[in-house]
Nucleic acid binder design. Structure first.
Length: 481
RNA sequence: UCCCGAAUAGCUCAGCCGGUUAGAGCAUCUGACUGUUAAUCAGAGGGUCGCUGGUUCGAGCCCAGCUUCGGGAGCCA
């Protein structure tokens, strides 16, 4: 008999029919009730074994984690707590699971412990929910852009460009570290290397994305990105996934509109398609919050928080306006900030961003027009204002609990200005000739942004450590599995 | 990389002022029970107290270094 997925059975009403289900044992209670999960839903189905007529040796093998195949009759449950169950007529152990060795027990485990057994944590309810939502969000990203006519562009993962300026890079090389080819002056002879030149893992697909946007109009990338920064935080990974749309003829306002629309679309998609998973995570968070003192608990539960995000416009303000708010804020006046806001020009610290998002506006915030000095070379320069301040058309979207989830800008399309900025920041223009050609031949105003996929998953799932929303996290000193 | 904290049974933790035989709950095992919902009841087994060195009559506890983990900061997405 072909197997039926548990998801379909839990909604079925055609009682009396014979079904086969394959899955993994979550719990085995009272020598007769097996809770089975097959991954099709976060919910289990209960299979009832007639233990008086079943071989005792077989019953002993029904242990937490074992893979089983069960055939029986779909019936209305005789007990409370579930609507349907399967009355077992045939039970086969597909794969045993030694209960003395299987590390997952029918009890709560800490996320820290589960991180150590990341290869098995998929089998827990929490990670079942998290990775189902991750899948749904990834699918929705493509759905959104496809519906809008964007072209999905595969930018290279191995890049020959080392001037992207987005962070420290991982070197890609086949040179034997015990036998490094050298030039006469002692430097490494990259001509002997696989590509005949130094290469790295990409830190961003933006520059290549811009090339494609100058032909297709609207493109996006969605792929792995690598940063060799020694960052040890709950928001950073050495390998993460980033969504980077790049659009010709978009100014910074169009750019913000698109980013806000995308984020709301993705959240709405999760709410509409991951109800069971979000409900589970919502309750999980509520349980967790019970441990905390009253004043540290969040005002909204997970679903309400997501809903709130959909129903309200993101607050848009300039860096200059933000600095004014911060300068006059209580924590600044009372000198509670670690870094006090004195004047214009300094980069905002995360305590400032958190104040704006979580205390002042209490909703997502889009900050624009940062000082040119603290931003990248490719961002479009604004007119210098009366006070001589130079700003660029950057926009960062800050989310509560997450911080920066989107970073983007209108790009500098004027060749002279771009060359000037590259010169200021000591970026060798001759190595970027291919990029500069976009400005030489049919340059046009354009914009784009990067959305950190894991940070989005963090927000939607309510998880707090980025290592728990990617299957196998890569962080400094950790590349297990 | 910097600041703070932690590391004791499979898991989550307790362990007082340094004192001789290191505890609990859960899990596991054995038995009982048999419409359970993280079943329940009774009993049992289970420890290189992260590693290395030091102080001391005596170290899980004090000191130093290291490792790993967690929280925060910086960098950013």
């Amino acid at each position: 008999m072909t197997r039926t997925k548990i998801k379909d059975l839990l909604n079925a009403t055609d009682f009396g029919r014979q079904v086969t289900i394959n899955g993994w044992v979550k719990t085995f209670r009272n020598n007769q009730f097996i809770a089975i999960n097959d991954g099709s839903t976060i919910n289990n189905i209960q299979a009832v074994v007639d233990f008086t007529n079943t071989d005792e040796a077989l019953l002993k093998r029904i242990t937490t984690g074992a893979a089983v195949s069960v055939t029986g009759t779909l019936v209305e449950s005789l007990g409370k707590g579930q609507r349907v169950e399967v009355k077992v007529s045939q039970l086969e152990i597909l794969g045993d699971s030694d209960p003395e060795k299987f590390p997952l027990q029918p009890k709560k485990h800490s996320l820290e412990f589960l991180r150590e057994i990341a290869h098995l944590r998929f089998r827990t309810n929490t990670f079942n929910a998290v990775f189902k939502i991750r899948h749904a969000l990834a699918f929705a990203v493509h759905k959104f852009f496809n519906e809008k006519g964007f072209v999905y562009m595969h930018t290279p993962i191995i890049t020959g460009s080392d001037a992207e300026g987005a962070g420290e890079m991982f070197r890609v090389s086949t040179i034997d570290p015990d036998n490094i080819p050298r030039n006469e002056d002692g430097s490494i002879n990259y001509k002997e290397d696989f590509f005949g030149r130094p290469t790295n893992l990409t830190v961003s697909g933006q520059l290549e994305g811009e090339l494609a946007a100058m032909a297709f109009g609207e493109i996006y990338t969605f792929g792995p990105t690598f940063r060799a920064e020694n960052s040890n935080t709950t928001r950073h990974l050495a390998e993460f996934w980033m969504i980077e749309p790049e659009m010709a003829f978009y100014d910074i306002t169009d750019n913000m509109d698109l980013a806000e629309e995308l984020l709301k679309y993705l959240i709405r998609y999760a709410l509409g398609n991951c109800g069971d998973e979000l409900e589970f995570l919502r309750n999980r968070l509520l349980e967790e919050e019970k441990q905390k003192p009253q004043n540290e608990r969040s005002e909204l539960d997970l679903l309400a928080k997501l809903q709130f995000c959909l129903e309200n416009d993101f607050e848009r303000l300039t860096y200059t306006e933000a600095v004014e708010i911060l300068r006059n804020s209580k924590p600044n006046q009372k000198k509670q900030f670690k870094y006090l806001i004195e004047g214009w020009g300094a980069d905002l610290q995360s305590e400032h961003e958190r104040y704006l998002v979580e205390k002042h506006f209490k909703k997502p915030v889009i900050l624009t027009n940062y000082p040119a000095e603290i931003k990248s070379f490719y961002m479009r320069l604004n007119e210098t204002d009366e006070q001589g301040r130079r700003t660029v058309r950057a926009m960062d979207i800050l989310f509560p609990g997450i911080g920066e989830i989107v970073g983007g800008s209108q790009r500098e399309e004027r060749l002279e200005n771009l060359l000037g900025r590259m010169d200021e920041l000591n970026i060798p223009a001759h190595e970027m000739d291919w990029y500069l050609d976009t400005r030489r031949f049919g340059s046009a105003p354009h914009s784009g942004f990067g959305l950190g996929f894991e940070r989005l998953v963090l927000f939607v799932t309510g998880m707090t450590n980025i290592r728990d929303v990617i299957p196998f996290p890569r962080t400094p000193k950790n590349a297990e599995f």
